[in-house]
Amino acid sequence: MPRYPVMKESDLPPGARKLVHVAGVEIGLFNVAGKVHAYRNVCPHGGAPVCLGKITGTTLPSRVYEYDYGLDGCILRCPWHGWEFDLRTGEHLVDPTTRLKKIPVESGGDAAASLENLERFPVESEGGSLCVVLPGGKAGGPS
């Protein structure tokens, strides 16, 4: 599987977000508390550029009329309809079967083993660089 180095690890500190274009595909990279997650920049609900949404927290399940704020920095709120996605899993908070197209983060090794479909992009750490891995296509540098 072709690997595309996209940035230095140090370019994506905790809390940061970067959008990259790789082989014609827009991918958002998010560092959530030291762990890097990558998702395709297409909302599974309405096709919005979901990775441009606000990174925030939310109200946690609570008793009636109680407000318990948490998951700060873990929630990506889609810029079109406001759907909340957990950046750690890509899952929509209301319907977990609706999920962002996720890239598992791996430190080296054979990323292709976890490649399941076109929408699932592994990210590899290679010599201080973050790489995304796309199925098929020509290997090369970032577009």
Binding site: H45, T58, T59, L60, P61, S62, R63, V64, Y65, E66, Y67, D68, H81, G82, W83, E84, H92, L93, V94, D95
Partner: peptide, 15 residues
């Protein structure tokens, strides 16, 4: 609307 605005009513546990 719940799919977008759930955070206003965190006490709801289902649709």
């Amino acid at each position: 609307n719940y799919k977008a605005l759930r955070s206003e009513v965190p006490w709801l546990r289902k649709l």
